[in-house]
């Protein structure tokens, strides 16, 4: 009689577990280079920042680094400039993400119809997204908005309005204008993909049933676009919360320093108070994590949809 003794069973299950472990590692190995690289390059600097943030450390004038507990953080609460930067950051990110989503959706809806030269128009429209931020900022501040030679000001004068030095008068909104100009095409691409994924027969059926185009838009198109709009919101926030180039090139931080720019000014941008700047940056990270949690929930929704499908 073929019997299995207890030791055999243990051996067998050991064996199975060993194979399972091996299989798990076989699955993990392809992941490791990317994961390790990302951990080393992105996480280690933050640990350093965390350490610097509890020290008093100024390079110019050079002073030895000393531990000072949480006083860098305490100063944050009272620092008016930091609060200004925080407000600027919120205004800049929220308005540029929402506006570019709105404009991008509008452009996508226009382009989704049968229009003469559709491909050509799309090509022209995506260009601002491909332009480097430094160049976009330069073109707008020196050739469009400039008081002396700007095309916009020339137009204003032609219709009898006084010339305005837009960038120094409305630094934040000038930057937002350029951001929206650059990111609307990106949003347009995403929404276009959503519109093209629509089921034409459903739309046709709705039309036959006498639905108005407004009804079709709000009750069929918009719900279908939702995941795409969420994706745009997520990607837009990731990149627009970090805006630095536009602030640097257009204003040099005057009147529109967002938090990233502020941290820069306080540290390697001339402030050289590394301890304090690190505390600022830790706060930035905490805020980002809050936003990221929200963003990841959106993402998680996208993944749920994938599993349900």
């Amino acid at each position: 009689m073929a019997t299995t003794t207890p030791t055999d069973v243990i051996d067998r299950s050991e064996e199975i577990r060993r194979i399972q472990r091996k299989e798990k590692w076989r699955r993990r190995i392809p992941l490791l280079p990317a994961l390790l690289f990302t951990i080393v390059v992105t996480q280690i600097p933050f640990l350093f920042s965390l350490y610097y943030s509890v020290t008093e450390w100024t390079i110019r004038p050079a002073r030895p680094r000393t531990f000072n507990g949480l006083s860098n953080y305490a100063e944050l609460v009272t620092n008016k400039f930091f609060r200004d930067a925080l407000l600027t950051s919120v205004l800049m990110t929220v308005s540029s993400v929402l506006l570019s989503l709105l404009v991008g959706t509008g452009l996508a809806l226009l382009l989704d119809r049968k229009v003469f030269g559709q491909g050509f128009l799309r090509t022209l429209l995506i260009t601002p997204f491909l332009i480097m931020p430094v160049v976009a900022s330069q073109v707008w501040s020196s050739q469009m908005l400039s008081r002396t030679f700007g095309v916009v000001n020339w137009l204003l004068e032609t219709v009898g309005v006084d010339r305005i030095e837009f960038v120094s008068r409305y630094p934040l909104w000038s930057i937002v204008l350029v951001l929206v100009w650059q990111w609307s095409p990106f949003m347009m691409l995403i929404v276009l993909a959503g519109l093209q994924g629509q089921d034409a027969s459903v739309l046709e059926a709705a039309r036959v049933d006498g639905a108005t185009s407004r009804g079709i838009f709000f009750q069929i198109t918009l719900p279908q676009l939702r995941p795409y709009l969420e994706l745009g919101l997520l990607l837009g926030s990731i990149y627009l919360i970090q805006v630095f180039d536009h602030v640097e090139v257009m204003t040099g931080g005057r009147g529109a320093a967002n938090v990233p720019y502020f941290v820069y000014q306080r540290s390697i941008g001339g402030g050289w108070s590394f301890g304090q700047a690190s505390a600022f940056s830790i706060v930035v990270v905490v805020f980002s994590i809050i936003i990221a949690t929200f963003g990841l929930r959106v993402l998680s929704g996208l993944l749920e949809g994938e599993e349900a499908a």
Binding site: T42, I44, P45, F46, F48, S49, Y52, I238, I241, Q242, F244, V259, P260, Y261, V263, Y264, S267, I268, F274, A277, S278, S281, I282, V284, V285, S288, I289, I291, A292, G295
Partner: peptide, 10 residues
């Protein structure tokens, strides 16, 4: 989501 500016110093 972690701003690069916050890591530039280290």
């Amino acid at each position: 989501f972690l701003p690069i500016v916050a890591a530039i110093l280290p």
